[in-house]
């Protein structure tokens, strides 16, 4: 759901640049203060993985494709703010080097896939972890549900931005964006689980940190 140049009007994209700018500055402060230095290489690898997997579009129904976004996955591994930094850097590389997502829309894309994708997604994940704290494999159930919900939210915010820009009426674009991404989000949830399952085998401590039970 990378928004290209031209879909958003000036007031919308400048506002979202502002909001994302504030969010990313805050994320830098949080990482500076709280992030464990030893996990910096993990930031690099997570970003590389997110970039690579975002290239792999998979078909969903009706001649449409979707790809993994990864906001919740990186937030589970790194925390919400380092997660936002990773998403921001992936989106910046995609925009500046590969022309995927417009420069004017970069603020919006960081908002949708970074702030909503990672920070909001993280708190949704934590919410599920909390209500399932005594359930075996709560990490996987929570990861799937929060990834799926987060993709739908990201797509819905994208739709709201398009309607505020006067590009498409909300009554049409919101249900359609949310609907398509409800399908794509299933893929998102499955890939998130797949990666977490791999991490469970090699680095289970990373999952325990985030409230995993019975793993």
């Amino acid at each position: 759901m990378h928004i290209p140049d031209g879909f958003l009007d000036v007031k919308t994209w400048t506002t979202l640049w502002g909001i994302s700018g504030i969010g990313v500055s805050y994320a830098i402060k949080k990482v500076e203060k709280e992030f464990d230095r030893k996990k910096i290489p993990l930031i690099g690898v997570s970003a590389a993985f997110v970039f690579a997997s975002q290239m792999l579009n998979f078909p969903v129904a009706g001649g449409t494709s979707g790809h993994f976004v990864g906001g919740v996955l990186v937030a589970i591994l790194l925390g919400p703010w380092a997660g936002l930094l990773v998403m921001t850097q992936v989106l910046a590389i995609q925009c500046f080097i590969f022309q995927d997502g417009g420069l004017t829309a970069l603020g919006a894309n960081i908002f949708n896939m970074g702030i909503v994708g990672s920070v909001f997604g993280y708190y949704i994940y934590k919410f599920f972890i909390k209500i399932m704290r005594n359930i075996q494999n709560n990490v996987f159930i929570s990861a799937f549900l929060s990834s799926w919900i987060t993709i739908i939210f990201s797509a819905s915010f994208c739709a709201i931005e398009l309607s505020i820009s006067g590009t498409s009426p909300l009554s049409l674009v919101l249900p359609m964006m949310a609907g398509v991404h409800a399908l794509i989000g299933i893929g998102e949830g499955l890939i998130t689980i797949l990666v977490l399952n791999f991490i469970k085998k090699v680095r289970v401590d990373l999952l325990r940190l985030q409230g995993g039970y019975g793993i």
């Binding site: 759901m1 990378h2 928004i3 290239m55 792999l56 579009n57 998979f58 078909p59 001649g63 449409t64 494709s65 979707g66 790809h67 797509a155 994208c158 964006m177 398509v180 991404h181 794509i184």
Partner: peptide
């Protein structure tokens, strides 16, 4: 080998 169908947006 990624799908070349248009993405959601």
């Amino acid at each position: 080998f990624a799908s070349s169908f248009p993405d959601g947006l």
